[in-house]
């Protein structure tokens, strides 16, 4: 087998029908853009979920007038919970100072308030593996059993909903992925079938002078893989343009949501795009040549 000969044959084949090949590459690009866009959405939704989960903490607000000794006892008790990584005590004074700092120049609104209305609290951070809704549930159940704890604040409920949404997206993505994969392969397979028709004469001659079916097929396989890769390049271009557009218009909002940890076009998506593009192109041509040519 001579790779250069086959590559030359494939290139000649594509040159002979440039329009049909270009259209096929554009069609593949459209499918891949949809597929890639979905992949990017999924990757970033997962990142967001991980980021939010890693920031999960439970705040246990304490009742008024608890002795220092009792405080130490409660802190020790909480630290013994298997889910707990760190417990930080925020006194009433600390809470007020933090609020004032947060309000900055607006802190004067607190001037009219007599005394300190804010409760003391424990901020409880969870170990890895417990930073999820199940971990939150375990900790909050135990905290509710402590008399001195007045009220709990945590983000577990919405996190659970968010995780459920991601699961649905993943399931929908798998279904959409299958449809997109099939349509891409169909496009490539039909394109190759069309080029086969335009080159039937040549294939017939090659067959009659003793070319093996594989020898005849290899250039078409290469064409399929090249079409898929071209489609991936076009899809990448479209996605990069979309990335620029989104970042320009929604950059600040995304930064707020993801805390700067967003990559609209992560390398996993790019690798996926090119791998899938080439593989679909190749398989599309394999399908169209499955029963052709006969000996």
């Amino acid at each position: 087998m001579r790779p250069l000969y086959f590559i030359g044959k494939a290139a000649a084949g594509m040159r002979n029908a440039p329009l049909i090949n270009l259209l096929a590459a554009v069609n593949i690009a459209l499918s891949l853009t949809l597929f890639g866009g979905f992949l990017v959405g999924l990757i970033n939704a997962n990142r967001l979920a991980e980021r939010l989960e890693s920031r999960l903490e439970v705040v246990a607000y304490l009742k008024e007038r608890i002795s220092t000794a009792s405080l130490a006892g409660i802190e020790d008790e909480i630290k013994k919970f298997p889910e707990v990584r760190e417990v930080v005590y925020i006194s009433k004074e600390d809470a007020l100072a933090s609020l004032k700092k947060g309000l900055a120049e607006d802190s004067s609104i607190l001037d009219g308030i007599e005394g300190n209305p804010l409760p003391a609290s424990f901020v409880i951070r969870l170990r890895d593996g417990f930073q999820n809704s199940a971990g939150i549930k375990g900790v909050t159940a135990r905290l509710r059993g402590i008399d001195s704890v007045d009220e709990l604040q945590y983000g577990g409920q919405w996190l659970e909903k968010f995780s459920a949404i991601i699961s649905i997206i993943k399931f929908g993505g798998a279904a959409l992925g299958v449809i997109l994969i099939l349509s891409t392969m169909l496009i490539v397979s039909n394109t190759i079938r069309f080029t086969l028709q335009t080159r039937m004469e040549e294939i017939e001659v090659m067959r009659l002078v003793g070319a093996t079916p594989l020898f005849i097929r290899v250039p078409f396989f290469i064409e399929g893989a090249v079409l898929g890769t071209l489609g991936a390049i076009l899809a990448y271009g479209a996605m990069a343009a979309a990335k620029g557009f989104i970042e320009y218009n929604l950059g600040n909002e995304l930064k707020l949501l993801f805390g700067g940890d967003i990559d609209i076009l992560p390398y996993q998506a790019i690798i996926g795009l090119f791998t899938f593009g080439m593989a679909f192109g190749l398989f599309g041509s394999v399908i169209s040549l499955w029963r052709f040519p006969k000996a």
């Binding site: 004469e201 040549e202 017939e204 001659v205 067959r207 009659l208 002078v209 003793g210 070319a211 093996t212 079916p213 006969k294 000996a295």
Partner: peptide, 21 residues
């Protein structure tokens, strides 16, 4: 079927319609 191409390499055929490209 897989052996036919090798037989054809030992047989030259001139077709009535030439079958040229």
């Amino acid at each position: 079927i897989s052996e036919i191409p090798y037989l054809r390499r030992r047989i030259g055929v001139i077709f009535q319609d030439f079958k040229l490209l």
